[in-house]
Design a protein around this nucleic acid. Structure first.
Length: 561
RNA sequence: GCGCCCGUAGCUCAGCUGGAUAGAGCGUUUGACUACGAAUCAAAAGGUCACAGGUUCGAAUCCUGUCGGGCGCGCCA
């Protein structure tokens, strides 16, 4: 008995129905059998819409087709070991009623599979480079970054568990005007700390973190930079501040991400592209392919030839390269590392750049589909019931560290990843702080802790010594729990394929709910004998699946709470 | 003006890529602990799935349009 019963059933159906489907000219339906969990119990455990899907092609009424399919399925030996009964319902659905013993056996097989239950084995695993957060190293992370951090890190975990090879990467924008501005702002904080006032640059950065970093630099260098900043042209001092400030800022960012349980395999520096002359190489290649032209004193890339709205500047008339230019060089570099797929997670404020980046791939003679850009919607901050965009100026910034301090990593990650990344998210920090105990993560935690408590109680008991065997029949609540547990591999696969970690939070809430119902209706230890042994196994499997699900979104599974 | 995203219960959101009578949590009302953890469970109430067309056996889901909200549309990053 396989742990992944639903896949097993799917394969059996495919094999048994293939011939019939082909005779209707709908053979391809056998390749992608859709097994659904009907919303209503009376519709069975699984349902097939094959007859409905084939009706158009066959030119015959669906129920008539369903009758022929049912005959094929009933004749199939493998299927009849899982399936107690088949029925045709409604417009032409084929409903499957699974055998209780088979369900129980599958649950025990899932338990035996241990860490491998739900793990994907795609026929062709992808090697994926997943880039996310990539915040400018000019300030600390805020809750907007936190959303992408939670989303991206969860996605990396899920894709890995689904069987792909995933590297995660943080791109450091440590080159260009923003870094210059950062260095000059840092110089102001540095000088002030030593009793000298320098003019704050227009649109300069401000904030406690600059004082913090300035203090560190004063500790390291004393007043050594002061003369250059006040007397000289300041170039040497600014250069140092840019480099060292960036290092210190990145260290803070990395520490915050570490607290948030987000780890990157690689930190890639934009500056390194300039050191390696990646832009020159890139430009030469683009000139050869004819995708670049000089116009109005600037160097343009002809992205409009590849589906972009208009052409884009690579080198300004000032001679400075644009951000776009180094971004192309960066992606060229990523491609050269040999990944099958490059996934970028960008904020909604960057969606306008998708077309030009895809165009760049086409110009580089690379398949644009290798580049997968996921747009995450923004986070709004709610203050006194009003929705506000986060802004330093308006003082509505909420930092990731603040969020963690307020509600903890588990509640924060669950909250951020629970919603579809496609919808804007409102965060009311005060409300989150006051009502953090209502976070759904604790509902899932409670189920986990409750099971752990039962297992502690069972430790060393007679029940624990009995080897579990699938019972001949299951109580309705037991049955529901088993069906939910067996849905786990499908939930993982769906979350991975659709890049939607929130499907797993939805899944584990349902699983926790089904467990609580089971708990209230089906005594475990008190049942005694073989029933107790089997139910104890269900408890263990539920605990494992909850813990695994939580770990896939970077949340802990406490044994007590 | 153009492009992308969103609009589902009083509030916050799911809805398995087109399935059967649209679901949770919070809030409201009511019931269940001498019990393997009541941070739980059971029940009630709450809906024009923004609106109007279209596609088909079947639409919250797909296509078109309208309305409303968010985000973009630079030789900024």
């Amino acid at each position: 008995m396989s742990a992944d019963l639903f896949s097993e059933v799917k394969q059996a159906v495919s094999a048994a129905a293939a011939g019939r489907l082909r005779s209707w000219g709908a053979g391809e339906l056998a390749e992608k059998i859709e097994l659904e969990r009907p919303a209503q119990r009376q519709h069975g455990d699984l349902s097939l819409n094959l007859a409905l899907a084939a009706a158009g092609r066959a030119g015959r009424p669906p129920r008539e087709l369903a009758a022929e399919l049912v005959a094929d399925l009933e004749a199939d030996e493998r299927l009849s070991t899982y399936c107690r009964r088949l029925e045709i319902a409604g417009p032409g659905f084929i409903n499957l009623f699974l055998d209780d013993a088979a369900l129980g056996a599958a649950a025990l097989a899932a338990l035996a599979a241990g860490d491998d239950f739900g793990r994907g084995e795609p026929p062709a695993p992808l090697s994926i480079l997943l880039e996310f957060v990539s915040a400018n190293p000019t300030g600390p992370l805020h809750v907007g970054h936190a959303r992408y951090a939670a989303y991206g890190d969860s996605l990396a975990r899920i894709l890995t568990f689904a069987g792909h090879r995933v590297d995660t990467e943080f791109y450091i924008n440590d080159y260009g005007t923003q870094m210059d501005l950062f260095a000059r702002s840092l110089a102001v904080a540095y000088a002030r700390r030593l009793g000298k006032e320098l003019p704050l640059p227009e649109d300069g950065y401000r904030g406690d973190y600059l004082d913090r970093i300035a203090a560190t630099i004063v500790g390291e260098k004393g007043e050594a930079l002061l003369d250059d900043l006040t007397g000289g042209d300041g170039q040497q001092a600014l250069s140092f501040l840019r480099r060292r400030g960036c290092e210190l800022m990145l260290a803070e960012i990395e520490a915050t991400l570490g607290r948030f349980r987000v780890h990157f395999d690689r930190w890639f520096s934009e500056s390194s592209l300039y050191r390696d002359q990646a832009l020159e190489t890139l430009l030469a290649a683009l000139r050869r392919s004819g995708d670049v032209t000089d116009r109005d004193g600037a160097t343009w890339m002809l992205t409009s030839r590849h589906g972009d709205d208009k052409d884009r500047v690579l080198i300004r008339s000032s001679g400075e390269p644009t951000y776009f230019a180094s971004d192309i060089a960066y992606h060229r570099q990523k491609l050269d590392r040999g990944y099958d797929r490059l996934i970028n997670i960008w904020g909604a404020d960057h969606h306008g750049y998708v077309a030009r980046m895809k165009a760049a791939f086409a110009a580089l003679d690379e398949d644009p589909d290798k580049l997968e850009i996921i747009i995450g919607q923004l986070v709004n901050v709610i203050e006194r019931g009003e929705r506000k965009q986060m802004s330093k100026r308006a003082g509505t910034m909420v930092m990731l560290d603040e969020l963690i301090d307020a509600i903890g990593v588990d509640a924060a990650r669950f909250f951020l990843v629970e919603r579809s990344h496609d919808s804007a998210l409102d965060l009311d920090l005060e409300k989150a702080r006051m009502r953090s105990e209502e976070n759904p993560v604790y509902y899932v935690h409670y189920a986990h802790a409750r099971i752990c408590s039962i297992l502690r109680k069972a430790a060393g008991s007679e029940t624990e010594a009995v080897e579990a065997a699938p019972p001949g029949s299951l109580e309705p609540e037991e049955r529901q729990l088993v069906l939910q547990l067996l849905s786990f591999p499908g939930a993982v696969a769906a979350a991975a394929a659709s890049r939607e970690p929130h499907r797993l939070t939805t899944y584990m809430r349902s699983l926790a709910a089904d467990f609580h119902v089971f708990y209230h209706n089906c005594p475990v230890l008190r049942a005694g004998g073989e029933t107790a042994a089997f139910r104890l196994s269900l408890c263990t499997l539920t605990r494992d699946v909850i813990a695994r699900s939580l770990s896939l979104v970077g949340v802990k599974a406490p044994e007590r709470m």
